[in-house]
Design a protein around this nucleic acid. Sequence first.
DNA 1: ACAAATTAGTTGACTTTATCAACTAATTTT
DNA 2: AAAATTAGTTGATAAAGTCAACTAATTTGT
Lengths: 150, 150
Amino acid sequence: MQQKHIAEVRAFNRFYTSIIGLLDRHILNSRYSLPEVRVLYELYHNENTTASDIISSLQMDKGYLSRMLQQLVRKKLVAKKISTADGRAVHLTLTPAGRKEFETLNRESDKQIQEILEKLSSGDCERMTGYMAEIRSLLTQPKTTESDGR
Amino acid sequence: MQQKHIAEVRAFNRFYTSIIGLLDRHILNSRYSLPEVRVLYELYHNENTTASDIISSLQMDKGYLSRMLQQLVRKKLVAKKISTADGRAVHLTLTPAGRKEFETLNRESDKQIQEILEKLSSGDCERMTGYMAEIRSLLTQPKTTESDGR
DNA sequence: ACAAATTAGTTGACTTTATCAACTAATTTT
DNA sequence: AAAATTAGTTGATAAAGTCAACTAATTTGT
């Protein structure tokens, strides 16, 4: 009876892909691209990040990132500083303007989610976010224990 | 206490975006692009589809689709037939080869999901797919009833 | 200490993906 | 039956992403 489960996961994937697509649309209508926002996100949440860090955490081509950073620097959202410890490495930080801009985008994203949650009763909202947390945890650290008849 | 829920949804979105990205990678390594596979999916599941149908269901640019269909026709996966009822409209169908090819891709996708589910106990698997179905249903038809203190 | 190998990031060339507008031909509206 | 609309095609470009060659700094092995 595994087939039923596979079908449900795939149906969910299709469904959630379109949800995410809808949510992303809002960012695409902003002055930034999706990858740009992801980079801003990384920089906002991690002090003392280098280009290499982003390359590995976002699995991004280094040439692509390099150019993107140039733009973000030109837009005064990001500042580069050559590492004193390693002259090849570049430390990246958001400028105050960059932080502010990210916070605006962040608020907008929050608001978007809020609008979705508002359509749910508080009980449903509680339940749904519980399910989300559960799914994350199940897919993050799949326990191999509980040796029952699977 | 809504903020906590918003944060969970957003965390889930980030998480699931990367899951989907990982799963898509497998298609990207195939001989087809993601949009191509989505078109094949539509054609496989809907008899008697026109280009317009796909444009509206997949929200795709018509020029882009037109060229994509040309390629799929060249690859002998899709057949075009001008509608007898409306000489502008083109009816699209998968050729036998197209159906076969889609079924292969479909099986590969199933297998991919299966590999994920195999890491879960049967109880966890049951639970997770239940959560997915729940989330889908909550986000699809958000009931406005149950007027409790939200 | 120092040559060889590795690493961080940049740059150029290119492919793929996607968008937009102009266009043709068929159909619908008035 | 002229005017407006619709389905799809085509050309021109833009945006997104990849790949390889390259420079400069650092690390490794001897």
